[in-house]
C-alpha cells in the first residue's frame, strides 16, 4: 500500500528566510502521529505545504502517491479555520459548501459527529465559542474520507471537556488505513492515543519515533520531547 505522506528534501523560504530546510518525512498508513515543535518551528507551514496552499518550495511532496497539488488536496483533509465564510453563515450552509465541493464528504458521518459534539445545525459561526468552532472544524475534517488528515493545533485554547470530545472522536471515527498528523507545541494530553511522534527543530525533522518504543525505555513521551529542547538550553 502507498504511504499517505512522503516528503523528500523539502526546502521553503519566505522573506529571504529559510523556514524549512532539507526536511524528509514518511508516514505509514493507519497511524496517529504528533508533529511537535515549539511555536514558530514551522509546523503550520509544513502542513500548508503538504496541502498545496503554501507555494514556491523545493523538493517533493507526495500524498497517497500524488504530487500534483489538486490531487493532493483531494486525498487529504486539513483543519481549516473556516475564514472563507461570513460570520453570519449557518453550520448548515457550511455543510452545503462541503457537500458540493468535496465528493468524499459523507453527510451521514458529519451528522453523527455533529451530534456527538452537541452542535445544533442552525447555529451561526458568530454564535460559536472557540471550543465549539474547533469541534465543528474537526467534525468537518473527519467527515471526508481521505488517506491523510492534518490537524493543526486542534487543542489550542479550548477547555478540557472539548479536548476530550475531540480526542474521543479521533479514536471513534478514524478509518483503519488512514493516517492522522496532529501538530501541537506540547504533548501531554494526547500521548496515549499516539503511535508516533515527529519532532521539528532547527527547521527540519530531527526525530521520528514510536511512542511505545519511547516508553519501553522508561521515558515518558513528554520527557522525551522536552529533552530535545532542553539540550539546546544547556548548550
Amino acid at each position: 500500500m502507498t504511504n499517505p505522506l512522503e516528503i523528500t528534501d523539502l526546502v521553503y523560504k519566505k522573506n529571504q528566510k529559510k523556514i524549512i530546510t532539507d526536511l524528509n518525512l514518511t508516514l505509514k498508513p493507519g497511524k496517529i502521529v504528533a508533529l511537535l515543535g515549539e511555536n514558530g518551528a514551522g509546523k503550520t507551514t509544513l502542513m500548508r505545504i503538504i496541502s498545496g496552499v503554501a507555494k514556491n518550495y523545493r523538493g517533493s511532496v507526495k500524498v497517497a502517491g500524488f504530487t500534483k497539488e489538486a490531487d493532493r488536496k483531494g486525498h487529504l483533509s486539513f483543519t481549516d479555520g473556516l475564514t472563507g465564510f461570513a460570520n453570519s453563515t449557518k453550520i448548515n450552509d457550511i455543510v452545503k459548501f462541503y457537500q458540493i465541493l468535496y465528493h468524499d464528504f459523507n453527510l451521514k458521518q458529519f451528522e453523527q459527529l455533529r451530534d456527538f459534539m452537541n452542535l445544533k445545525p442552525d447555529l451561526r459561526l458568530s454564535e460559536l465559542s472557540k471550543g465549539m468552532k474547533e469541534k465543528l472544524v474537526i467534525a468537518l475534517t473527519f467527515s471526508r474520507r481521505v488517506d491523510l488528515y492534518l490537524l493543526d493545533e486542534p487543542f489550542s485554547g479550548i477547555d478540557a471537556m472539548a479536548r476530550k470530545k475531540i480526542i474521543k472522536s479521533i479514536i471513534l471515527w478514524k478509518q483503519e488505513k488512514s493516517t492522522i498528523l496532529i501538530s501541537d507545541h506540547f504533548v501531554n494530553e494526547i500521548t496515549a492515543v499516539l503511535d508516533e511522534v515527529v519532532i521539528i527543530k532547527n527547521k527540519t525533522v530531527c526525530m521520528q519515533k514510536s511512542t511505545e518504543a519511547i516508553r519501553a525505555d522508561n521515558q515518558s513521551v513528554e520527557e522525551f520531547y522536552e529533552s530535545f529542547y532542553q539540550r539546546e538550553e544547556e548548550e
Binding site: 496541502s51 496552499v53 500534483k68 497539488e69 489538486a70 490531487d71 488536496k73 483531494g74 486539513f78 481549516d80 479555520g81 473556516l82 475564514t83 472563507g84 465564510f85 465541493l101 468535496y102
Partner: peptide
C-alpha cells in the same frame, strides 16, 4: 478575497 483565502484554496481543483 477568494484568491487569498485558505478555505477556497483548499478545494481540490487545479489553480
Amino acid at each position: 478575497h477568494v484568491s487569498g483565502n485558505q478555505t477556497w484554496r483548499l478545494v481540490p481543483i487545479d489553480d
